[in-house]
Amino acid sequence: MSNHKINVTVNGEVEVVEVPANMTLLRMLREKLALTGTKNGCSAGECGACTVILNGEPVNSCMVLAVECDGASVMTIEGLSKDGQLHALQQAVIDQGAVQCGFCTPGVLMSAYALLQRNAKPTDEEIREALVGNLCRCTGYNRIVEAVKQAADQPETVAA
């Protein structure tokens, strides 16, 4: 199996990475770049724990090959807070008690971030629909939905 050398911008940093063809974006982030905030819950596109933002849109990083990301820009949970300052969504998740074990949380935050980028004032239904691919076994979801609403009410959220 051959390796491919790719250029990929991750959280604003240009990275040059050697990846085997069968390496998913998820594995590249975790194993090549030690960005372990992105989680692996199924490797099958079902759980959403691996959700990252690829060229502005959320994807299941277990369903994307790393080689496909040559020239792309990726944002992970590690890129959400800036200089130790939490993003409004992160603060909202804390305020609403929307995190328990935390394993789904990075993926949830990526999906929610992308939602607020495309829809600054989502309805309850729109939030639930946007998060349907992020399984959470702990919280029962309602606090996550409330957290997204809280963040959406803050003007700086979308600008961030």
Binding site: N40, I77, V93, G102
Partner: peptide, 23 residues
């Protein structure tokens, strides 16, 4: 008192370490 979780900040930033995250 409903204080915020002690582990919340780590968990919302992706800094929280789970067994598969250790190098």
């Amino acid at each position: 008192v409903s204080v915020p979780r002690i582990d919340a900040r780590e968990k919302v930033t992706g800094a929280a370490i789970y067994a598969d995250d250790i190098q």
